Amino acid sequence: MTDAIVPDSQYKGFVARLPLPWRHYALLARFDRPIGWWLLFWPCTWGLFLAGATMSWAMVAWLLLGSIAMRGAGCVYNDIVDADLDARVARTAARPIASGAVSQRAAWVWIMVLAGTGLIVLLQLHWQAKIVALGSLVLVAAYPFMKRITGWPQAWLGLVFTWGAPTGWVQASGFGNLLPLVPLYCGCWAWCMGYDTIYACQDREDDALVGIGSSALSFGRHVRTGVIALYALALTGWGGAIWLMRPDPLALLALAPVALHLGWQALTLNPDDGDGALRRFRANRFAGLLMAAACFVVGITR
């Protein structure tokens, strides 16, 4: 499995065309790997659309920009904290901070630039949504340490990486009707934990050697069963949110495409195939789009 892992130093696209100093900063923010910001962005649209703001396209664009900037800032912060661990893992050893290409001081300056972009987006939100969005900062700050103290860091990531759902929801409807948000967010948490468990299958050998936690390790021989259960929980939560917004069996049919897609991911997962795990992880960009379509249909027809 280790031989199939693609090191983070192998990049392509526009990042490969940047002058070397800029390239290091682009790599730090993972601009060469857009899957991360899509996974951060899609839950924003789910909360926004399901709460009824189906035509807020300007806000959708702002939330996408915020997702790109804050995912980048989070990656830089994660690399600062994990520099010692990254240097000991084959896939991450060539990352700019771990390899010494970018100093930690320069990395902190880069975080401030990215966070400044996030601040511009924050100012576009209603005051209630501003409060919710700022509430994620404590979760984000604690995440890089979770793999050092627990075998289930993906459980914490599920709280962090889907915070866009409550932010989008409150942006659309304020604090007036939060009940449907509970199952929506629970479903988002399970979805994130599921796809990041798939992602972690790439690093199981290195994680075990380094001594850091991972749900792909903690599930042991039952990784596929664990992912199936998590995706089932995600669909149950999303179905509950849709039902609370529109108690109609036909509305639940909107989840059929994303249910089939997640079923394909989980049922065909081979935890020992690093390339296959990476393809299924990346496929969650499409899963997010399918869920956004479901929320849009329910939001516009209720």
Rank of each mutant, 00 (worst) to 15 (best):
L114G: 08
W62S: 03
F219Q: 00
G52A: 06
L122P: 07
L157V: 07
L184H: 04
T225K: 13
A155N: 00
W108K: 11
A216M: 07
M245W: 05
Q154M: 08
C44S: 11
D86V: 01
S218G: 01
R148W: 01
H261S: 12
L134D: 09
V210P: 12
G118H: 08
S9H: 13
L64P: 05
G288C: 11
A94W: 03
I242D: 00
Y185H: 10
A29G: 08
G299M: 04
L252G: 09
G176I: 00
F145S: 10
L48N: 02
S103C: 04
V297S: 05
P34C: 12
Q10N: 10
A232M: 13
P34I: 12
Y195M: 09
A107T: 09
M291Q: 10
D275Q: 15
E205S: 13
Q171K: 04
L252K: 04
I228G: 05
L267H: 12
T45F: 07
K12W: 07
A4L: 15
L269R: 09
L157D: 06
G226K: 04
P153K: 06
L137A: 14
A133S: 11
R221Q: 14
R17G: 10
D86Q: 01
T225F: 10
V138H: 11
R221C: 08
L137R: 05
F14L: 14
A256I: 14
L48D: 02
Q104P: 00
P19M: 11
T236K: 02
M59L: 15
S103P: 05
P183R: 08
V60W: 10
G168Y: 01
S67Q: 10
W264R: 14
N177H: 13
I97T: 01
L139Q: 07
A53I: 02
A208H: 13
G274C: 11
I228M: 14
A4K: 14
P257D: 11
V227M: 11
D206A: 14
